[in-house]
Design a protein around this nucleic acid. Structure first.
Lengths: 193, 193
DNA sequence: CGAAAATTTGACATGACTCAACTGGAGTGG
DNA sequence: CCACTCCAGTTGAGTCATGTCAAATTTTCG
């Protein structure tokens, strides 16, 4: 079941069976039921999580009680409040499961241990962070320069398989509109480009 | 003049003088005059740039000709269209100098060479990417959940020294409002929190 | 000093939000 | 298998935040 993680790592660095074994030994498997909260605002994030099944989301709740989704994480994705993870201070984000899900968790200190013992893992996580960075830059552009309709189309182009599974209101909370407004948008003629 | 770069690297990894020397040998110093364009949409980005003086900006131009700023880079910051750098495909962003500036440039292949020769540099760039990632996550939250006035105050809190130097319209293009609207906002009573 | 760029201001337009009511499944318990 | 509830989604009327355009004014910098 953790092959998906190992496979992903091996796409970037070569692993001996000893390294692979040690790497996997640092993870704990965990199941999360739909709607269960994994990380709560105010907590110090101790774990990074790799999704092996289901879908999770990373989001904030603003002062008016509205949710805003920073990231979806289907199988094969990492998820975590990186600000809290790095600073080891209480975070302001939530993580919960949109569907029944299964994840592999690794403790922050164990990642550091991993780097110390096998520095080659720095490479994997560097590449991971750089790719995520590129994605966030693209999203920042989209948020700044496009109206809601195009942000929606953009999202559909980028994550076609996600759009199927997600309740519409989550898509709204990701692209930054109210569920009502998204609904109205979709009922109108959508010039598909 | 490149001490600022070396110092920053040394905050994260230890360097022998040989490593330091090799590292620096990969960079080319370059001056850019105010308003001069360093990177143009449609180009494949070959260089990553570290700013040692002045201020640069990374931005896109939308179909209506409006500029949207992704990032400012004062001295001590890295700047580059990471999407194009990683993919080695033509980018859709611009980089130019807001003031007369000076940068150190390193070629993508030379970074890879550096990783091969001294893998410890993976660590420095991993940390760099992770910190940038955290900043982009925070910005995504701010964009999604806050109205323009708070995004402005947020920006002022985060980059107080920048706000001084920047023409107001650049701040507007960063927080995602028109220059006219920002001007109106500022002329009204700003409850400072 | 003079031209060009940045900022301000005002009238008006509109995209997106609010609130509230209604519809239609999906899941649950009897 | 029905009845009930509970969300998600829809729809509409009214409002608000922000944008547009254009002109006037100030600042910047060559």
């Amino acid at each position: 079941m953790q092959e998906i993680l190992v496979q992903q790592v091996k796409d970037h660095i070569q692993l001996s069976s000893e390294e692979e074994e040690f790497f996997l030994s640092l993870f704990t498997k965990k199941k999360i039921k739909r709607k269960h909260i994994l990380v709560h605002e105010g907590e110090v994030n101790k774990y990074s999580s790799f999704v092996i099944g289901g879908i999770l989301r990373l989001y904030s709740i603003d002062k008016n009680g509205f949710e805003h989704i920073i990231q979806f994480a289907p199988a094969g994705w990492w998820i975590g409040d990186i600000t809290s993870l790095l600073s080891q201070k209480p975070g302001n984000l939530y993580i919960d499961a949109i569907e029944d899900s299964e994840i592999l968790q690794i403790l922050k200190p164990d990642i550091d241990l991993l780097y110390t013992k096998y520095p080659k893992f720095e490479r994997y996580f560097r590449i991971l962070a750089e790719n995520a960075l590129a994605a966030y830059q693209q999203r920042a552009i989209s948020n700044l320069s496009q109206p809601a309709k195009e942000r929606y189309l953009n999202f559909c182009r980028l994550y076609p398989s996600l759009v199927q599974h997600l309740p519409q209101k989550y898509v709204a909370a990701y692209i930054g509109v109210t569920p009502e407004f998204l609904s109205k948008m979709l009922s109108q003629p959508v010039s598909s480009k």
